[in-house]
């Protein structure tokens, strides 16, 4: 896209220049919140579906206590100390549901609005820019995810699966994880051509859900596979949640936080720029 720019604009100060190159003018109108308002309006009548989303992880938790826990009395926790199986899996499910919810919102829902409903075209005829859209959609996904995560943590508390007040931080941590997955998912969605490509999303999410130490500890794997597993984003999310709810906290955890903050930032910028180049050609 070659554009004729005013000479005056070319000699912008270097610091401004960098920001401008990452987020060109017109990409952001400062109105992302109105997109959240729209989502709230749409979902006002669908509150049942919204509340229903909390139902699934609670069923999972219940099946853990009733069933799976009967086979496995205890598992090695993050610090090597044995913990009950339910206390081991519950934080992992919290992380996984943050991932699943965010990915679902950012891929299926966004693709539909983008390709079929042409909703974003209508929005871009207003002062809003692609970054408003990306941030607005992600913010709504986070609000929803936050609601589910809070419910999940409450049920965990009720079932005696929370061992430490650090668990309070599990809620913002879940939001950060959801932010990162949502942003990356949305960026990926802008590259999809048809519904057929969504099996690739499944292909990324499902193995992560099943194999990133959600249901069994890392020690199950042979050495080289352990290395592979520790590379997956869900593994980092699960480590973070497990540490917080079980009260095994260390400075090393900040590494996970940085990991997700970077994913979130890169994902958002890529999603906004791609939306921009697709919708504003």
């Amino acid at each position: 896209m070659t554009r004729t720019l005013d000479p005056a604009n070319r000699t912008a100060p270097a610091s401004v220049g960098l920001v401008w190159r990452i987020i060109p003018p017109g990409l952001y109108g400062g109105r992302a919140s109105t997109l959240v308002e729209r989502s709230a309006l749409v979902n006002r009548r669908g509150w049942f579906v919204l509340v229903g989303g909390a139902f699934e992880p609670i069923l999972f938790l219940w099946s853990l206590g009733l069933g799976f826990g009967q086979f496995v009395a205890s598992v090695a926790g993050p610090d090597g100390q044995p913990v009950s199986y339910a206390a081991f899996v519950a934080p992992a499910l919290l992380a996984a549901s943050a991932m699943n919810g965010a990915v679902y919102d950012a891929t299926f829902n966004v693709f539909f609005k983008f390709k079929y409903a042409k909703l974003y075209d209508a929005m871009l005829a207003t002062p809003m820019g692609p970054l408003d859209i990306a941030m607005g959609e992600i913010a709504w996904a986070l609000l929803r995810g936050g609601l589910y995560s809070a419910g999940f943590l409450a049920v965990m508390l009720g079932m005696g699966l929370i061992a430490s007040p650090w668990a309070l931080l599990a809620l913002p941590a879940a939001l950060l994880v959801a932010f990162a997955f949502g942003a990356v998912g949305m960026a990926a969605t802008t590259f999809m051509r048809s519904w057929q490509d969504f099996d690739l999303v499944q292909l990324a999410v499902l193995p992560m859900f099943l194999f990133s130490t959600t249901f069994f500890p890392l020690s199950v794997y042979p050495g080289w596979l352990q290395a592979v597993v520790t590379w997956t984003p869900l593994y980092h999310a699960i480590e973070l949640m497990r540490g917080l709810t079980l009260g095994v906290v260390g400075w090393g955890m900040l590494g996970h936080v940085v990991y997700f903050a970077v994913l979130a930032a890169v994902g958002t910028v890529v999603a906004a720029r791609r939306l921009g180049s697709l919708l504003l050609d």
Partner: peptide
């Protein structure tokens, strides 16, 4: 190129195909 949002704030657009919500 520079003032897209400012301009869009003052114009109205009716696209070829209805893109209602």
């Amino acid at each position: 190129d520079r003032d897209g949002p400012k301009i869009r704030a003052r114009i109205g657009v009716v696209p070829q195909l209805d893109n209602l919500d």
